[in-house]
Amino acid sequence: METALEIMAEHTKGSRPARVKVIRSVRPRPEARFGKGEVKLPTRATAYRWLQELERWQPTFRLSTKRNRDIAARPPGAYGKLRPSKPGEYLLMDTTRLDVFAMDPITLKWVRSS
């Protein structure tokens, strides 16, 4: 059965959903699987409390959408687990820009070094 956490993960690629939208999308799923009235649904206040707790594992409502997409696009494994068997088998590049500046002697302005 799908959980609210999985439903929150469905919204990773889209815009930030409203909490009520996630709650509404959770409610019909137990009925479809187990039948109407078989699963007791939580009250609205309880559902909001559960979403607040699930926000720790799957940030959906409070952090930036770009950050959430970047986190979802990360590879599942760590980079440190690569074990090359020959030289040059793996290449790991760091594309972080350095905070190094230099002064242009002609314009006397600070420029970022490349």
Rank of each mutant, 00 (worst) to 15 (best):
T43C: 04
P87K: 09
L51N: 00
I7L: 15
E55Q: 02
G35I: 09
G35V: 09
R56C: 03
A45H: 05
T107K: 02
S85F: 04
V39T: 11
L92Y: 07
Y90L: 05
E6R: 05
R49G: 02
T96A: 15
R112K: 14
P105F: 02
P84M: 01
V26E: 06
T96V: 07
L63A: 04
T3S: 15
P42Y: 10
T43P: 04
Y90N: 01
R24M: 01
P17F: 04
P76K: 12
R44K: 15
K66E: 13
G35Q: 06
Q52Y: 08
V100T: 11
M8N: 05
R27A: 12
L82E: 07
G77A: 09
L41S: 06
G77I: 00
F34P: 00
T3N: 14
E89R: 08
L5S: 15
L92Q: 11
P84T: 01
E53Q: 12
M93S: 08
L41F: 09
W110F: 14
G14F: 07
K109S: 06
H11L: 01
V100D: 03
D104G: 09
V39R: 08
L51D: 01
R74S: 02
S64N: 07
D104K: 05
R112W: 13
I71Y: 01
A73M: 00
A18V: 00
Y79A: 06
H11W: 13
K86Q: 12
P87G: 06
M93G: 06
A72L: 00
G88W: 08
A4P: 11
A32P: 00
I7V: 12
T43M: 02
M8F: 02
R83C: 12
G80D: 01
W50H: 10
V26I: 08
V26F: 08
G35C: 01
M93D: 06
V100Y: 08
L108D: 10
R29F: 09
A18C: 06
R19N: 00
P87L: 05
E55V: 05
Q52A: 11
R44D: 15
I23Y: 04
R74A: 10
R67L: 14
P87R: 12
F34L: 13
P75R: 09
Y90K: 03
E10G: 08
K109V: 09
E2P: 15
L54V: 05
R69Y: 03
N68I: 13
D94M: 07
D104C: 14
T46G: 05
V111W: 07
E10C: 09
M103I: 15
P75V: 03
K109L: 11
T3D: 12
I71A: 15
A72H: 07
A45E: 15
T107M: 01
Y90I: 03
